[in-house]
Amino acid sequence: MPAEPLIVLSGVNKHFGRLHVLKDIDLTVGRGEVVVVVGPSGSGKSTLCRAINRLEPVEAGTITVDGQPLPAEGRALARLRADVGMVFQSFNLFAHRTVLDNVMLAPLKVRRRGKADAQRKARELLDRVGLLAHAGKLPAQLSGGQQQRVAIARALAMDPKAMLFDEPTSALDPEMINEVLEVMQQLAEEGMTMVVVTHEMGFARSAADRMVFMADGQIIEDRVPEDFFTDPRTDRARDFLSKILHH
C-alpha cells in the first residue's frame, strides 16, 4: 500500500436537488498513485472528480489535499486549486488565446513567474506533448486530440501535486484517443499522482494502481486492476464489465 496519502476524502456527501450523488465517500489516494474511477453514467464519478478541487461543493465530509483541508472559498482555495491540475472532457482551452498563451497564462498570473521563464517552461511542455509547432495557433484551429494534449500541458505548467482527469477522451474521435492516452500513460510512469475518470479499460489495465468502481453514488469496489477485471466481487461490477468489455 502507498506510504503517504496525498488526497483523502472522508464521509463526503452531496445532493443535486433530491438526487443523492455522493454517498459517504471515503477514498485515499497515495502520492504517486494512479486511481482509475469507473462506473455507469450517473454513478457520481465525475462529481467525485470535480469535488476534489471543489468545482463541486460538498455538503458533508472532509477533503484534504497534502494534509490541507479544502477551504470554503477565496484565496486559500485558489492556492490549493493551483496545486491540483484538472483536465476536462470538453478541453476548455481559453478560446481567445493562443496555445502558448493558454499554457503560460496561469504560471504568469497565479504563480507570478517571469515571462521568459514561463514561456520557456510552456514551450518545453508543448514539445513534450508534441505540439510545439502549433504554439501560435488558436485552440479552434486544432483537432480535439491536440486540444486535449494542450489542456494537459496547461495543467502541468503549474507543477501540480496531483492531476484529475474527468473523462478526458470521451469527447474525442476514436482515432485521437490514443494520442491523449499515451501522454497520460507517460505521466503515470513518471510517478504523477492521478485520479482518472474514464471508460478506457485498456488504459486502466495498463496504468492504474487501483480501480475504483462506483454505482449510485457509492464506491462499490476498490481493488487492483488485475483482480477487478478478472474477478469482480459484486454483481453490479460484473454486469458493468460484461457490458463494456464485450460489444
Partner: peptide
Amino acid sequence: GQGEAARSLGMSFTQTLSLVVLPQ
C-alpha cells in the same frame, strides 16, 4: 467550462473574470 478551467488553475474570481470571461 471556461470559468471552471480558469478556477481549476488557481485563478481568483477577479482574474477569471478579467483574463478569461470578459475578453470572450
